[in-house]
Computed example of a mutant assay.
Amino acid sequence: MADLDGLSINLATLRKQWRFAEAVDACLRHGITTICPWRDQIADTGLAEAARIVRANGLKLTGLCRGGFFPAPDAEGRARALDDNRRAVDEAAELGADCLVMVCGGLPAGSKDLPEARRMVADGLAALMPHARAAGVPIAIEPLHPMYAADRSCVNSLEQALDMAAAIGGGGIGAAIDVYHVWWEPDLANQIARAGRMGAILAHHICDWLVPTGDLLNDRGMMGDGVIDLPAFRAMIEAAGFHGAQEVEIFSDHWWSRPGDEVLATCVERFRTVC
């Protein structure tokens, strides 16, 4: 189905329905050949077997989720995080993923120092880049909505993510732009255009923002069910020069409770009609 070449399914969307191999089979049933798995899903299957499944089915990976979580209370913890991120790079390389998505981490335990947490993130990313470049794996910093600043990511705007990428420099680092996290930003259009000029758009994630939102983590909306202007967002991304797949990433107790084939059919229908 050529019209689905621009659709990717982040396998978090099907996390409660299927394991990795089953999710791949389901995507193929629906004509979807582009995915983004998570590291725990790959570990559950085994890296070698997951890579075999990817190659055997001619799958394209818009990314691997996730690296990051750099901040820690002490040097030992930061070193462990860096080691884990190097392993994540190696996994992304083995799978042939377009990028490794970074959820950078929030405040270390016991800390209230947000600027220091952001410094730890910048330092961790800079330390990781030689390994990532050697492996040929681009690093995609994903800014998260400010409601996650304390526990998931202290990088909370596209501007921050691009500033970090620019400060590190040297290529191979950019941003994963998720509509759920950045749709609200006042300077969004300028920052997306800036990302395009930098060649820094590495992934484009889609879902929707429900009103009301019942859970800050697990109540993302299916495209078209919320308030995000997805066609306008896509137009900005494409005007900036990114024409890669739109990656559906939906954390949702509602959609996790539905049959997986229903979820995929809805993703396909909404991709065709409202994105």
Score class of each variant (00 low, 15 high):
Glu142Pro: 11
Met164Asn: 04
Arg86Ile: 15
Asp215Tyr: 04
Glu142Ser: 06
Asp44Val: 06
Ile139Pro: 04
Glu269Gln: 15
Gly6Ser: 14
Tyr148Gln: 11
Asn156Asp: 01
Pro146Ile: 04
Leu100Gln: 04
Val89Phe: 06
Asp229Leu: 00
His243Tyr: 07
Val121Asn: 04
Ala175Met: 10
Asp178Gln: 11
Ala149Gln: 14
Gly224Asp: 03
Pro138Asn: 01
Ser257Cys: 11
Asp151Leu: 07
Asp25Ala: 15
Ala239Pro: 02
Trp209Leu: 09
Ile139Leu: 10
Ala189Phe: 05
Val54Cys: 05
Ala127Val: 02
Glu185Ser: 03
Ala97Glu: 05
Arg19Met: 07
Thr273Trp: 13
Leu114Cys: 01
Val155Ala: 12
Arg52Lys: 12
Arg55Ala: 14
Arg194Pro: 03
Leu114Asp: 00
Ala43His: 09
Cys207Trp: 01
Gly77Thr: 07
Ala195Asp: 08
Ala167Ser: 14
Gly58Phe: 08
Ile206Gly: 03
Val248His: 11
Gly171Val: 01
Leu47Ala: 06
Val211Met: 13
His254Trp: 14
Met129Arg: 05
Thr33Ile: 06
Cys275Ile: 11
Ala245Ser: 13
Ile9Tyr: 00
Leu28Glu: 12
Phe70Tyr: 15
Gly221Ser: 07
Asp40Val: 11
Pro186Val: 05
Val103Thr: 13
Gly105Ile: 00
Gln246Met: 15
Ala232Val: 07
Leu11Ile: 01
Leu47Cys: 06
Pro259Trp: 13
Ala149Ile: 12
Leu64Arg: 04
Gln246Trp: 13
Asp25Pro: 09
Asp261Lys: 13
Met198Gly: 05
Asp40Thr: 12
Val121Lys: 02
Leu217Val: 14
Ile139Phe: 01
